[in-house]
Design a protein around this nucleic acid. Structure first.
Lengths: 158, 158
DNA sequence: ACTCCTGACTTCGTCGGCCGAAGTCAGCTA
DNA sequence: TAGCTGACTTCGGCCGACGAAGTCAGGAGT
């Protein structure tokens, strides 16, 4: 398959990046994974501007990555929280993959900020590419791209 | 561990995104993974402007994700190619993770554009989070964040 | 030798996005 | 009823992305 001729209008990587590829989106998600739920917590912790945070939250909610919910503690007025949905948790391999890559290739002398561990077992957690059939972890050389049903080729250029 | 108090200047996710989080970076890498090597191929296939492509390639080369090499076919003048390095291939889980998420949650009726398969076995390939010790694939609930040596807390706010 | 062509960029004007700061508005408290 | 707080929206300024055009070196054609 010659990738140069593949029409990538409908590429899933590009679509995913339309949701989480803007500046701050994945950092908002990182913080949400780590338990931050409220607008002002996110704003303070990320050091992001209000306009951008409100926009990113809108986008993530619209895409089903986060859920916007009102909640109320007794005797206090109602507030808003943002919860990670099942679809949002499906992005965990991406965020862990970035964390792992940063640790490996951009680490400093201080060592990693945090480590992700298997709860209970305590072993280190890693993001990998593996075969869904036999469960083996694969190197890039062991993977290949095959055409899918949605594949279209580019019109030939003059 | 209260993530709200964690100083994230040196967060590996943020550092990784400083390299691959700008617009187009991961799409350039997607195309490089899929075999595109030359500047003009990338430019044509991505539909990106020259200024941005040249800048992204510079950044990716500087970060060690791509390697810039001159090569020469006999009887032709020397040209430039960009090859994915070992560090670059370490980002495969991230790109496959995005592909997988896009397929799952943003797919259209036409079905996926391409499928990543285990060469030989032919099984579907997936990006997952797993325990490095026992090899088990983990749900988000089975993972936890633990403090690392580089962790610093925020100065208390007035 | 001279011109043409091509690949790999750089430069330029414009326009959209991100920034910090300030403004808005509703619900609860004093 | 005035004040406070949380969750935003609005507003100038500036940085980054855009398309188009310009640059420059190497090889091909004549």
């Amino acid at each position: 398959m010659d990738w140069r001729q593949v029409e990538t209008d409908n590429c899933s990587v590009a679509r995913a990046l339309a949701v989480v590829g803007e500046k701050w989106s994945l950092l908002v998600l990182r913080d949400a994974f780590n338990g931050l739920r409220r607008y002002d917590e996110l704003r303070r912790h990320l050091g992001i501007s209000d306009a951008v945070l409100a926009d990113r939250l809108r986008t993530l909610v619209a895409a089903g990555v986060l859920e916007r919910r009102s909640y109320q503690e007794p005797g206090r007025r109602s507030r808003v929280e943002y919860l990670v949905t099942a679809a949002g948790w499906d992005l965990q391999p991406v965020v862990v993959g970035l964390l792992q890559w940063g640790d490996r290739h951009l680490g400093d002398d201080a060592g990693p900020l945090v480590e992700v561990r298997h709860r209970g077992c305590g072993g280190a957690v890693e993001a990998v590419v593996r075969c869904a059939e036999d469960g083996r972890v694969l190197t890039p050389a062991e993977t290949q791209l095959t055409p899918g049903p949605g594949l279209r080729l580019r019109p030939v250029e003059g």
